[in-house]
Every structure is written in C-alpha cells, then in structure tokens.
Design a protein around this nucleic acid. Structure first.
Lengths: 340, 340
DNA sequence: TTGTAAGCGTTATCAT
DNA sequence: ATGATAACGCTTACAA
C-alpha cells in the first residue's frame, strides 16, 4: 500500500505538503502541487481512509439498517439511500435486521464501532431501547424510515399511510362494497397501525360501521397474510367480506394464495387492494390495484435529510416528512357481486 | 466516545492491560481481568475499529459489488454473503454497480481506500481492466459471483449454466417442441454465453438443427426481453417458435408481456421456460416453469470460500465452484399445439 | 509556501 | 503479569 510518505519522497516534499496538495490544493504553490499530484498518480496513491477518519474523527460513513433486503420495498429504500449518499460523498454501511430485534442490536453495536456520522434505520419494536445503551450512536443524527420507534424528537421519513389506506378503502366503498375486510399487520408496527386507522376513517366517513370481526391482524409476512385472509374468507357467505384491503405486499401474496385455494375469483367474487406495488402485483392477472409507496424517494430524501443535518451545526428539532402514496387502480377491484 | 485510556484509569491499570484483557484474556490475571471487564462494561466501552484496523493492518472488512440490488437474484446473493460474513465476524461493504462499468470503477476505488481484506464481485465487462490499476485490491483474494471476468487464476462461484439451460431445453424437446426460440442476454456476459451454449447442446443432442434466426440476443433487462421476444414471435406462424427459453427473469417478464400483447396463450400456443425463479414467476397464471438458481448458496459459499482463503497463508490456485440448478416444472410448458 | 511534530485509539514489542 | 513506548497513516497546529 503506497502511502503519503512514499509520495512525499517521490515528489521531494514533506508529507504535510502532500496531504495539503491533495486535500487543500489552494494552500500549496502550483508548481509543487503539480509535482505532488503527478507523483501520487504515478505511484497509484490512494488515501487510507481508516487513518484519515481516525485522525479527523470523521468517518464519512452512514449506517443503514433495513428490515429485509430481500423485500423489494426495503431494497428500493436502500438504493435511494445509497444514491443520495453517493451524491454527497458518503459511504453506506448496510445491514439487515431481518426484523429481529436481537440482530438489530448486534448490528447497531457493530456499526457504532465504525464511527458512522449518522444512522438511517427501519426500526423494530425495540430500536428505542437498543439505542439507549449505545452512547455514541444515540447522539448521532438518526432518521427513521418507513415507520417510527416513537423515540422523542426523532427524525423520520414516512409514507402517508393513513391517507393511502383511506383512499384505497374509499375506492372500494365507491365501487359499492360495504363488507370490507382488512388483512392488517402486527399492531406493534406503526405502519400497520396507521393503515388500519385509514381503513377505519374511510368506513366511518362513509357511515359504514366498523366491525372488528372483519379485521384480521397477524404476522406481517406471507404466511400471516394467508392465515388472516383465510380467516376472513371462510366466514359464511352472507358475512364474508366482498373486498379485502391488505396492509402490505407480502401479506397480499398470501392473500392471493388463500383466494385461489378457496377458488374465489378476483374481482368478481372478491375485490382486492393492497399496500405496496411490486412486480408480481403488476404481472398477475388480474393485475392488482395497489397503494404504491415512493420507496426510492423515502430512502433518497431520508439520506438527504441526514446529510443536511450533518452539515448544520446544531441538532434540529425532530422533523417528520410524509410522502404521498398513489392509488393505482388496476383490475383486482370491481363492483361487488350481485347476490350481495 | 469512551476509549481504552478511560477504562484503564477506571480500572487502575495501564492501557495495554485493558487491551489484553479484552482481546487476549488468558494473558492477564483473573482478578485484574475482571476489574477491567467490569470497568469496560460500566463505561459502555466499545473498541474503535478504525484505530484497531489501522494498527493491525487488518480491517475485517469484505467488499461486495453486485449488479443490481433491486434484482431479487442479486439481493439474494448479497444476503448469502452477509450471512456467511457475519458467521465469521466480517463486515460487508455493499455496492451496486448498476451493471455500469464506470460505477464499478468508482466503487472499487472507494472500496480500496477502506482496506478490505477480500472482494466479492459480480463482474461487469470491464472488471478485469479496472482491477489492474488498483494495486492494493488486485492483490487481495477475489471471488467472482454468477459470472466471470475471465481474469486468469481467479476464483469464482457460479451456477451450472450450461447444464441448467440444457435441461430446460431438453424438457421442451421432450414435450415435442422442435422450433424453440431463445431470448438470450448480451453475449459479453458469460452467463448469457453459457446458457446459449446449453441451448445449443440440447438441440444438437436431439438432432434439431440450430437456427440462428431463432435466437434473439439483446439487452438483458425487461425491455430487451420484450423486444427480443417480439422479434421471435412476430415471425409468420409457420416459422414462429412453439416454445421460448429465456435467459433470465427480467427478460422473462418482458417476454410474458410480449406474449400477452400478441394475445398468445401460455402454454397452449407458446411454451415458456426461463432462468431464475422469482415471486412473480410463481404467482402468475400459469405459473412459470423455471431453472432455479441457488442464489443464496452462491453468495454464502463464495463468502465462505473467501474467508477460508483469508485464513490460509498462501494464495490458492484459482478455483471455480459450480452449483447445480433445478428445473422446476410448473404450468407454462406443455406439448406444442396440434397445428404444428 | 513549506516543514516539523504531535496526536487520533489501538496493539505489539520489549522491559520489568 | 503488567507497564512503557512506539507505530499504523493521516491531518493540523505551529514554526520557519
């Protein structure tokens, strides 16, 4: 590994001059600067960021913890973050909590030891308490993505979950549905809460009484969605929902399976609308009506927010950014069946 | 940030003793050790990995560059790598080349400055030449994933592309297809070459003459797949393939679109088999017959291989690991239409 | 404008 | 078994 000292002797100057020529060119005479730059080039010099970070007490590193890189939503978040980080010259250390608080704790600790300058995180239920014991990390600017941990004064970039859910359910109501079921996620997660709230609001506004029998909460993954949908769809035909609103795309996949296993037809016998747009939602037939989230933008803007926080002196008050969702009406929603 | 010196004074020992107590406990008296450990615990001490890496000249960092984290195959690779890395106490620095050689070059450089101990990469067409100028990186153990750059003596973990493709095409032939088209990727990528080769071999073995008119190469993404499929399917009915073999899942999505736009029915009018298994391939109807790649295992084993290389003294000879694919026969393949 | 020297937090070496 | 010291590669006062 060629280091500053090597460049220095090659250019016949002191190490400090090399350092200056490279990082503060205006402080060094043009002639010297060129000599140094050439030597550096010739030797293939690359600054050692470890040493630089240690000395400057700045790592130019950002930490990112997502729930599950295999989920397109999270992968897209991560891409947005990375693109924004790159734009500002930051590196991103990416981890998966796999939605497991213990893993999250481990990674937070690991991350801390690399002295990141800021943290972006899709929190789990325990994020708040994990952060408490991490003295260094918790004093960093932190931005939460997608959902919040409820930590006081924290920054967050989220989707308009309530509104998005309301629009989806309003769409169903407008089509004439009254018995609308919801496949909701685990209530500990704020997105699940908010989407449920949107569902409630839409019903209330339309004067449809809220019936908790029509809400099935469960594990937020595909299996959970399958089980929850089954529970709702197995009710006697006269009480069975004519439409289902699903809280995320993974549960939606389970819901589609359940519907198929029961030999129901979309949208003739059951209308379906889900949060999250995915490749498969577009490709199945009928294509799914969905509430699309601006995943890339959430990641990108969160990172921009973090960088701007880093560039200011003082910690700003906690700021929450809410990004609009878009209801994409495709072919899984229609008027309810006549028998109804 | 609490450092070793703080722990040292709290435990009334020297910094060296703290360092030893933490990293080589057997070298320090039990009593002292406990005092140190307690002090460290109490103060919430976390070693500064920057300093440690600088001093030890070992970063415990691995670099990973994938083509596109948004593609499920690459995301899964990354997950496998990270899980294996974690198992051995390594951290992974993850980048996306977006399949662009220029981005790859930038990230390789950035990566190098953090002194990773090894590199895992899904190479682009220029990886080989990029590595040439990176003196530090190119002397590291490097493992290529999914495809190879053709660098001499390099290690790689790949799928059995030739065999996988051959099985897929043999399956079509067994069903009675003779006019089988291939939607191939860009020939610069070794996976595309190999899958094409498998296609050839299957035809040859069955005594079906190879017809280059039935092979459409193109950009490996969805648009490329759409265009290529269109080209093949728009031929006059008597020359139109009765089955299509597609080189990867993104092009397969484009192919499905093309088939639908032409109002052809799968599998009655056109059989379809593609490389890569994805969520949508399982969920569309009919579900797609695919050649599934062990993406997670490729990532995991590649990382294991890298770690074992790091733990040996000398550089081993370049070693290539080929992992088996699995032909998953679902419902997009059937006997060709009678008119044929 | 350039050089000298100290220090970032660790760990390895050498004493004791 | 423990402590003093130097060194990893870089930046930055301060001095010249």
């Amino acid at each position: 590994m060629v280091k500053i000292a090597d460049v220095a002797s090659a250019a016949k100057v002191s190490p400090s001059t090399v350092s200056r020529a490279l990082t503060k060119p205006e402080l060094v005479a043009r002639e010297t600067r060129e000599r140094v730059l050439q030597a550096a080039q010739r030797l293939g010099y690359q600054p050692n960021k470890l040493a630089r970070s240690l000395r400057k007490q700045k790592s130019h590193l950002l930490g990112l913890i997502v729930g599950d890189i295999l989920a397109p939503f999270h992968a897209t978040l991560a891409k947005g973050v990375q693109d924004a980080a790159e734009k500002h010259g930051y590196m991103v250390f990416l981890f998966n909590s796999d939605e497991q608080p213990e893993k999250e704790a481990r990674y937070l600790q690991e991350l801390q030891s690399h002295l990141p300058e800021g943290l972006l995180i899709v929190p789990t239920a325990k994020t708040r308490q994990h952060l408490q014991s991490l003295q260094y990390l918790r004093n960093l600017p932190i931005i939460e993505l997608d959902r919040t941990s409820g930590s006081p004064g924290i920054h967050a970039v989220l989707a308009e979950n309530v509104l998005g859910a309301r629009e989806a359910v309003e769409h169903l109501i407008q089509l004439g549905h009254r018995r609308i079921g919801m496949v909701a996620g685990e209530p500990v997660i704020t997105t699940a809460q908010e989407r449920l709230e949107g569902y409630r609001q839409a019903l209330e506004q339309a004067g449809v009484p809220f019936d908790e029998q029509l809400v099935a909460c469960g594990y937020h993954r595909e299996e959970g969605g399958y089980a929850a949908a089954m529970e709702l769809l197995k009710r006697p035909p006269s009480q069975r929902p004519t439409a289902l609103f699903v809280g995320n795309s993974e549960m939606a996949a389970g819901t589609v399976q359940a519907i198929r296993d029961l030999d129901l037809r979309i949208p003739e016998q059951i209308s379906l609308v889900s949060f999250d747009d995915t490749r498969w939602a577009q490709l199945i037939e009928p294509a799914l009506t969905v509430v699309a989230q601006p995943a890339y933008e959430i990641g990108f803007l969160a990172c921009e927010m973090l960088v701007s926080l880093l560039q200011q002196r003082k910690q700003m008050q906690g700021h929450t950014l809410r990004l609009k969702t878009r209801l994409l009406i495709r072919h899984s929603t229609a008027r309810p069946c006549e028998r109804d």
